[in-house]
Simulated assay, not measured.
Amino acid sequence: MKIYFANALFSQADFEYNTRLVAELRQADPTLSIYLPQENAAINDKNAYANAEMIAQADTEQLTASDLVIAILDGPTIDVGVASEIGVAFAKQIPIIGLYTDSRQQGATNTQKIAALQQIAENQFHYLNLYTVGLIKSNGAIVNSTDALIKAIQEQTH
């Protein structure tokens, strides 16, 4: 199975997280072929040069040749590149698994948190763009842990 891994890759934290998570996925199932854009030095060696069209073409070729997209949804908002990749995957009917680990999704039944929503600027929960979430759910799923991600990938491969 060919998988496209979509996440931000410009901070050290994102770069290291991507490396660690993809290594864990590869170890869980060595038959997976995972494209991690940051490993493509032809377009992502930031000491070299690749223009916007070169980057779009290289990543889109990998994305549209994939059987599955993993999209990381964490951060203040969904990364704009990841949102674009979700849109392409949806248009090409490629299944998507979103990974959303933000701890603010917890406490959905806490009455104090729910009541706080009535006060301006007192949202105790994190918000994801519902259009983008809808694209994922239309042809995939959203999970909230690495274990659940591995299980969802296994379900896609069997």
Rank of each mutant, 00 (worst) to 15 (best):
K137P: 00
A56H: 08
I3G: 10
N51W: 05
D102G: 02
Q119R: 15
I114F: 05
F15M: 03
L128I: 13
Y17K: 14
I70D: 06
D45M: 02
A50W: 05
A152C: 08
I150T: 01
Q118C: 07
K92M: 14
F15E: 12
L128G: 05
A115K: 11
Y4D: 07
H126G: 04
H158Y: 00
I120T: 10
R104V: 00
N110P: 00
F10C: 03
P37Y: 04
R104N: 01
I120A: 14
V82I: 12
Q62W: 06
K92W: 13
A6G: 08
T109C: 14
K113Q: 07
N129V: 09
Q27I: 12
E39F: 00
I150V: 04
R104C: 01
I136H: 15
L73N: 03
T77Y: 04
H126F: 06
A8M: 04
D14T: 07
I55G: 01
S11E: 05
Y4N: 07
A65I: 06
L135G: 02
F125I: 05
L117W: 11
D147L: 07
L128F: 10
I136Q: 12
F5V: 12
G87P: 08
N51A: 00
T19I: 03
F90W: 15
D67K: 08
D29I: 12
I136R: 11
I142T: 03
I86Q: 09
L128H: 05
E39I: 00
N51T: 02
Q119W: 15
D67V: 12
G98N: 09
G107Q: 13
A13P: 05
F125C: 13
M54G: 02
V143R: 02
A83G: 12
L135M: 07
D14K: 09
Q106K: 09
Q57V: 04
A48R: 12
Q93E: 05
S145N: 03
F15H: 09
I96R: 09
A8V: 01
Y49S: 04
D74Q: 06
H158N: 10
L99E: 14
L32H: 08
T111Y: 03
A152I: 06
E53W: 02
